[in-house]
Design a protein around this nucleic acid. Structure first.
Lengths: 210, 210
DNA sequence: ATAATTTTTGACCATTTGGAAAAATATTAA
DNA sequence: TTAATATTTTTCCAAATGGTCAAAAATTAT
């Protein structure tokens, strides 16, 4: 026998297998949340047997934990990139673009996050109150500074950030609804192009100082 | 014995009991989604035994169905009120206010909806593609008309509506995150007052034609 | 009070669930 | 090839779950 779990899989084959499983787990967890997902579903999605999954991951929890961790890293990155030295409007515009691209390219991660929050963020509450809060505090200060200097219209920086999160993630989390309302006519690429243009207009026009 | 279910409970006591159960079910379903919720949880939340719940509701499904139906009615109302004859900016501003008040006053219903959408809207997809789409088509046309007349800045009316949905519901669905980031300092009343002001500024400034 | 009826619950059941054990099947090393 | 090792699956289990049923308790009607 070999180690049944562990943070760093030895061989590349093992790492790949773990990825296949994670992929399946993401598919299931993002739809049904932790409690609503079953190992059988994940196994079926991954095309292998249930005990085989437990050979690579010690438990359902462990899979979920790894998914959440990977997702949080991705999730925080776009905001970190926001640069205090840059042009305020351009920086915010670029941030929105990055966030929207994330919603387009990683919708399941977004839904996984959404699910976690809906359940009261049991696994990441510390992260939210710690790392995330610190990051947002910092960027809110940057934005507040831009506003003070008259380079941005004044509004609450925190709620501005919330608005950006909300509008961009909406296209991942509420995809079914967006598609239902827009009807078949809207291909994903076109949809996101229009969304991008709309959000840019919305935030830029609101924040621009004439 | 008596009827175990039925759309219209006979006595007032029965109607009240069903309400108590629905209330508990809402609490649980909104957090864990349909699959992740158990009758035991709901029973415990309601303070009665599991079989007693099934005396009033024939099944878990039936409870969920009634909750979803009640919620959808509430959910559609604010948009219906948007009036083509009114002043565009005032109408949109009022719509945002109504939606935000719903997020404040009925956060669990919002989360129930969020959960349903995350799971692919299995129970309401018809409603979304039917009733909701028709309503949004109609209101999008109204907004498009305002824009054509130069009374609102031009942008995609559908995505504008999505942005309003996203930003307002965010305060219900992502409450945990909002609170974590804002810290303890922010009481709910104050939080929503600031949110209201921010969203009003965001949308009004973006849409106003100078 | 007593009977009839409604409400509530404890005991139970079949199925599903997360997970363990061990046998069976690859794969690699010698 | 053969032994050692790594992987996969079949079988199983105890707990949890949605739901049933009949008996108990409470309520209402007479």
């Amino acid at each position: 026998m070999k180690k049944t779990n562990s943070k760093t899989p030895t061989t590349r084959i093992q790492r790949q297998k773990r990825l296949v499983i994670l992929e399946a787990a993401l598919e299931v967890f993002s739809k049904h949340g932790f409690r609503g997902s079953t190992l059988d579903q994940i196994a079926s999605e991954a095309g292998i047997s249930k005990p085989n999954i437990l050979y690579y991951y010690a438990s359902k929890q462990e899979m979920h934990k790894e998914l959440i961790e990977r997702m949080m890293d991705k999730w925080l990155a776009p905001l970190e990139e926001m640069n205090a030295k840059g042009d305020p409007i351009a920086e915010i515009s670029a941030y929105i673009k990055r966030k929207l691209e994330m919603a387009r390219d990683y919708p399941r991660q977004s839904r996984l996050f959404n699910n976690e929050i809906l359940q009261g963020a049991p696994h990441i509450i510390d992260l939210l109150e710690g790392e995330l809060k610190i990051l947002v505090d910092e960027k809110a200060k940057v934005i507040a500074n831009w506003m003070k200097k008259g380079r941005l219209t004044k509004t609450d920086p925190y709620h501005l950030i919330f608005s950006i999160w909300a509008t961009t993630q909406h296209y991942a989390d509420f995809d079914v609804q967006v598609c239902a309302v827009l009807g078949e006519k809207s291909a994903i690429n076109h949809r996101f192009k229009v969304a991008q243009k709309h959000l840019d207009l919305l935030f830029v026009r609101a924040l621009e100082v004439e």
